[in-house]
Design a protein around this nucleic acid. Structure first.
Length: 421
RNA sequence: GGAGAGGUGCCGGAGUGGCUGAACGGGGCGGCCUGCUAAGCCGUUGUAGGGGGUAACCCCUACCCAGGGUUCGAAUCCCUGCCUCUCCGCCA
């Protein structure tokens, strides 16, 4: 969320951001309402000042045992007037708020402007393997080796759910442990294991609500949402808090399942497990001081890249254009891994800097030094990594002509085997 | 799920309708003093919104978990929600 005063003082900047992101928040309406708002505030506060003065008089009259009924009767009119002004103000502020919370974050100046075709490939790592045979897509390999059960999962939960099995399940677990261990012991993150459901407030804080309500699983009886990413519970760890400057940056990593309804995406990549309703992910979340947040983004990206480097999976980095940036992000890099069987780049990570956008929504602040005025922190997060597509890449890139899968070296201690056959 | 208690400033903790933006204590900050010294004394110490001033700053309004209500007037009374604690039940 952007600050109202900032919007008022930088309307052109905000308008450009809305345009560049392909959003359609009604900025002009907001600016007009803002003027009205301040007019009403002037009136209502004058009336209140008057009311306070007379109230004081009544108290004094009562103390002096004087009759105050006439004054009290007069005050009734003023009280009604205040009430009606208040109602009007509330209406205006509510409308302002509804627009304000739908205004997207402003892209950083380094972000390419335009639709997704303007996404920039920043770099590529690793060689795309050229096998001497026709590589199979992961669903065929997984099916043949009994690693993933598509049919039974669909029977109990519906389409686009999967159930891992045997060494498939083990591979999933191995990857989670490998990633968390890496981020904790080498990159300095603290492991957390947060709730997998959260309240509306938390979803609002990270920007999932109000725009993405349709994309989330919802539990009406308890007004809870299943998390679509660990970003939500982990970022909300510090909601409504004032952190100390010296404890920043705070780095967290968490494994959670992620639940996404993927409403409206049926027909897209439905085969296999490129897009499923429940998937595992290891996430990294940072709370940092504003001045260093873009450096922190580069480090975050490097931390995610290292997972793929250690797994020896080729990937490329995209700097997303404004039109592809999410609502809350100021800048975002996507990491896409090469999947040899599908012959496709698959997104396995998004590393974003949200600047103070989430912090303002979730009210996460810090004091630069003792006694300093609290300021909003900057929040960042990135997948490190999403599991199913990483699994896909391993299955497809490490497959042999005989239909087996070589286990990447770094995973062997976690897997206990060198080859899945 | 049932029964009860409670949510006040940086912290502890008063306050049951007007004199309370909030006693008292602690902490922080500033100053003073000082051979009883990890002591004493004095002062100060929230946030947001609106308006005014070149500015240091000043004025007004709001905020005692949140949202409603009663009232001329609410931290104080009523309702709802959220959260915490205790006991019982159930349970991985």
């Amino acid at each position: 969320m952007l600050d109202l005063r900032f919007i008022r003082e930088n309307p052109d900047l905000v308008r450009k951001a809305i345009q560049d992101k392909g959003d359609k928040a009604d900025l002009d309406r907001l600016l007009a309402l803002d003027v009205t708002r301040r007019e009403i505030i002037g009136a209502v506060e004058n009336a209140r000042a008057q009311q306070n003065k007379v109230t004081q008089q009544i108290a004094e009259m009562k103390k002096a045992r004087q009759d105050a009924t006439a004054v009290i009767a007069e005050m009734r009119g003023l009280s009604d007037q205040i009430r009606s002004l208040d109602d009007k103000l509330k209406g205006v502020e509510e409308e302002i708020y509804q627009i304000q919370i739908r205004i997207p974050n402003i892209p950083h100046e380094s972000v390419p402007v335009g639709d997704p075709s303007h996404n920039q490939v920043v770099r590529q790592w690793g060689e795309i393997p050229r096998k001497g045979f026709k590589p199979l897509p992961h669903y065929d390999i997984a099916d043949r080796l009994g690693l993933v059960d598509f049919g039974r999962a669909a029977r109990m939960s519906g389409a686009s759910f999967v159930s891992y099995r045997g060494l498939g399940a083990r591979l999933e677990r191995a990857l989670i442990n490998f990633m968390i261990d890496l981020h904790v012991s080498k990159h300095g993150y603290t492991e957390v294991s947060p709730p997998f459901v959260t309240k509306r407030d938390a979803m609002f804080g990270t920007g999932q609500l109000p725009k993405l309500e349709e994309d989330m699983y919802y539990i009406p009886g308890d007004d809870l949402f299943l998390i679509p990413t660990a970003e939500v519970p982990v970022t909300n760890l510090h909601r409504e808090e004032i952190l100390e400057g010296e404890e920043l940056p705070l780095l967290y990593t968490a494994y959670t399942p992620c639940f996404r309804r993927e409403a409206g995406t049926y027909g897209k990549e439905t085969r296999g497990m490129v897009r499923i309703h429940q998937f595992d992910k290891v996430e990294m979340v940072k709370f940092v001081k504003p001045e260093g947040s873009y450096d922190e983004l580069e480090k975050l990206l490097a931390n995610a890249e290292e997972v793929l480097q250690l797994l020896k999976l080729p990937y490329r980095i995209l700097c997303l254009a404004t039109g592809d940036l999410s609502f809350a992000a100021a800048k975002c890099y996507d990491i896409e891994v090469w999947a040899e069987g599908m012959e496709k780049w698959l997104e396995v990570s998004s590393c974003s800097n949200f600047a103070d956008f989430q912090a303002r929504r979730a009210n996460i602040r810090y004091r630069a030094f003792k006694g300093a005025k609290p300021e909003y922190v900057h929040t960042l997060n990135g997948s490190g990594l999403a599991l199913p597509r990483t699994v896909i890449a391993i299955m497809e890139n490490y497959q042999t002509a005989e239909g087996a899968i070589i286990v990447p070296e770094v995973l062997r201690p976690y897997m206990g085997v060198e080859v899945i056959r």
